[in-house]
């Protein structure tokens, strides 16, 4: 099972940096895992904790939130709020023992195509090691 497990990873990417970095990774012919499904958001702070919990409860194996480096937010301060929200959610998931290691917050700027490739590859490997989301076959837990 572990060998042919192909994870399903959701990536919320900020329009102004990480989404552009994904684009750059593609045009630079860098490898990006095929298991990553991207969702473009106008700012990483647009991602409500509910979106992340919803992805997890519906069976996503990993959730990545990627935005501009602190201080570089297109809207000045959005990613600082993202960090607080993510920390809050992480703490809640940790307290309830709901796989906090399946959630990740990364800063990837528009020029960091290589970093985008590395972060997503590393995260995909990490999720493959963790195995499938245990909630996949639990219709009552959602």
């Amino acid at each position: 099972m572990a060998n042919n497990f192909k994870p399903n990873i959701i990536g919320f990417l900020c329009n102004w940096c990480s989404y552009a970095a994904a684009d750059l990774a593609g045009s630079s012919k860098l490898e990006v895992p095929a298991t990553l499904t991207t969702i473009r958001v106008m700012c990483s702070s647009r991602v409500d904790p509910v979106h992340i919990i919803s992805a997890y409860l519906q069976g996503a194996d990993g959730v990545l939130i990627a935005g501009c480096h602190p201080g570089d937010c297109h809207y000045q301060t959005g990613n600082y709020y993202t960090r607080r929200r993510f920390a809050l959610l992480h703490k809640i998931m940790e307290t309830f023992k709901l796989d906090p290691e399946r959630f990740r917050l990364s800063w990837i700027s528009a020029s960091e195509g290589k970093r985008f490739s590395e972060v997503t590859k590393e995260f995909a490997e990490h999720i493959e090691k963790l195995g499938p989301n245990p909630l996949k076959n639990k219709p009552f837990i959602e």
Partner: peptide
């Protein structure tokens, strides 16, 4: 689609999502 992913789907949906969502919005 949701049911296929989860092996089935409960109605009404989103019980745990509602409570965890409310916790993430409100607990502070």
């Amino acid at each position: 689609i949701k049911a296929q992913n989860k092996g089935g789907i409960k109605f009404p949906a989103n019980t745990i999502l509602f409570h965890l969502g409310r916790i993430s919005h409100m607990a502070l």
